[in-house]
Write a protein that binds this DNA or RNA. Structure first.
Lengths: 344, 344
DNA sequence: CTGAAAGCGCTTACAG
DNA sequence: CTGAAAGCGCTTACAG
């Protein structure tokens, strides 16, 4: 193995003190009265030999690791992986590394992960939290770690967060269906009390209730096999033949739902209109194309990464909490065309 | 910030030497003549106070970091994100952390990433390499780092790898089209000399050539805007009206291609049959459903992770190279139904 | 088993 | 500016 160059090697090679080298590397040259000429000499030598400070020695010494943990439900979910991709780029530019992991909405796994990341002393945490990790989050912030939540917050805990307006988005989407003449609108969502899911559900409930329409809610478990989810949705739709539109609360529920609708040989939108929370390339190409609530993925990523980098750069721990709520956009497509009566 | 517990604190609290604590933690108790009783006492205390060794001190001291870098084309690509998810889980169980990043098939970005990971002294590298990083890979292995390639290899360089049989998969898929009566089969692929792309192309060329059919190849750039890719595919299909089937070399090319086909109002499979390299949930739900070559994502992940963990666990650097080639599976769906002449 | 010690590579306060 | 020094928390060879 090639010998790693150390700061000592550099000092010796240039006949300067390693203090000077360290100051130059860390941009403290001017502040520490090191001449520009020496600084340049050091920096160009570093460049030349391809020196890289040992990350572990730095981490051990400074307690800062330039690493951020990102914990989401499922890193292979298109929504989360798109966000991960954008954050990675932004973080990389500022010399931060991101460690991704999937919580599977399992609070025990999430606790274990936080524990492991604490051992690694990552500087900050970006989390789409499952319920049940309130104490661990409190522990993190109490110990001075920077935490930013996104996609959802947790009840009873005040933390920096970036979310979309789930309530209004859902409310508007359901209203759009009502205005297009749909009367018996079902919502199929997760059996979960996560805040973002609760808000989507409330938006739906408000809209149908205000319109004097019944609410038809079906909830399925997160860990359900897809086959089972499809079966449950089929049974639900069969049991409520009056349903003429359905609002799916997430992408993966919609995947099962679209399969159920196909299995039941229902036509979209003639027999049943469809709207989904979260957009996907696929919905544009689906026959018919599917109306979806698009989250501003780029903006979410930027807000989260800017927020956490700003917090990490600040010398004193912030005592106030930043909450950003972003709007979504309803992508209107053919699965929600105005209702034509008598199925013509 | 809560004071971190160190190995010194533990030694003091238990009135034992920190040597003993270290041995117990690292499972060297028996080997170092530490009594089982003492070992248990130490371990249960560690459990009780939630001690976690400082990762950076360990890394600095041992030179091992328990981190693996994973570099893929695009972490938000469904194929790569699914693999990332599976690897993360497997690695996590063995106490390894994975650092993901996207190369964008850009060799300069990839070099920078490798450089950064070297600074972090990650133990191993899992890479779906872009062309042009042969020297960097050679540098890594020369310096004793463990490298496993997947999805593709690089010409003229012998490294551990896990890939699928791109040539045979493509050859068989095109033969399937030929057997179903399609005569003018086009392939739309990347303008890239990456090995896996070259193999897919060669499989196609062999199949059509052997059948005495013409080859109709269209290549588009990786970084093309999707709108531009769609336009190019439309122009290509318009310019070759005889095409009755098309083989897309990747998912994202197929996304553009399906849009082009739709824009041209061509019916699948009556006007044009479709087959795609890489499967996706979406193809099952597409109307009509799309035939695809499915890579064994689970097995690829397992093979890669097992290979790298085995190599990392081995005390002596392996001098031989492991190459694993896995078969794919053709998922036959409605986009390649046997051709009906005269468009009836 | 203990205990003192060295050393991984860095940062930083300090005396000159 | 230099140079010696301490210390981050760990692992490990060594003498007892």
């Amino acid at each position: 193995m090639k010998k790693k160059i150390t700061i000592d090697d550099i000092a010796r090679a240039l006949n300067v003190s390693k203090t000077a080298v360290s100051f130059a590397i860390n941009g403290k040259a001017s502040e520490k009265l090191i001449s520009v000429e020496l600084e340049n000499r050091i920096m160009s030598y570093i460049e030349e030999v391809g020196y890289r400070p040992n990350h572990f020695a730095q981490g051990l010494r400074t307690g800062k690791t330039k690493m951020i943990a990102m914990m989401v439900e499922d890193i292979s979910d298109p929504f989360f992986s798109a966000i991960a991709r954008l954050m990675e780029e932004a973080a990389y530019k500022r010399e931060y590394k991101i460690l991704y992991s999937s919580t599977e909405n399992d609070h025990q796994k999430t606790r274990d992960l936080i524990d492991a990341y604490r051992g690694m002393q990552v500087d900050g945490y970006i989390i789409a939290p499952p319920l049940g990790i309130e104490n661990e989050l409190k522990g993190l912030t109490d110990d001075g770690y920077t935490v930013v939540l996104f996609d959802r917050t947790l009840p009873g805990i005040e933390l920096n967060s970036v979310v979309v307006d789930n309530y209004t988005s859902s409310y508007s989407a359901v209203n759009y269906l009502l205005n297009n003449g749909y009367e018996n609108i079902a919502m199929i969502t997760l059996l979960s009390e996560q805040i973002q899911m609760a808000e989507r559900r409330l938006g739906y409930l408000s809209a149908v209730t205000e319109a004097g329409r019944p609410y038809l809610l079906k909830r399925i478990a997160y860990h359900d096999q897809q086959e089972h989810a499809i079966f449950e949705i089929e049974e639900f739709l069969k049991a409520h033949q009056q349903i003429d539109a359905v609002f799916f609360a997430t992408n993966y529920i919609a995947d099962s739902g679209l399969e159920a609708i196909r299995n039941l040989m229902l036509q979209i939108p003639d027999d049943i209109a469809v709207i989904v929370f979260d957009d996907d390339n696929f919905y544009r190409l689906h026959t018919p194309s599917i109306t979806a609530i698009a989250q501003p993925i780029k903006e979410i990523s930027e807000q989260v990464i800017n927020m956490i980098l700003k917090l990490l750069a600040s010398p004193v721990p912030a005592r106030s909490v930043n909450s950003i709520v972003l709007p979504t956009k309803l992508m209107i497509r053919n699965s929600t065309l105005p209702k034509v009566s008598n199925k013509n």
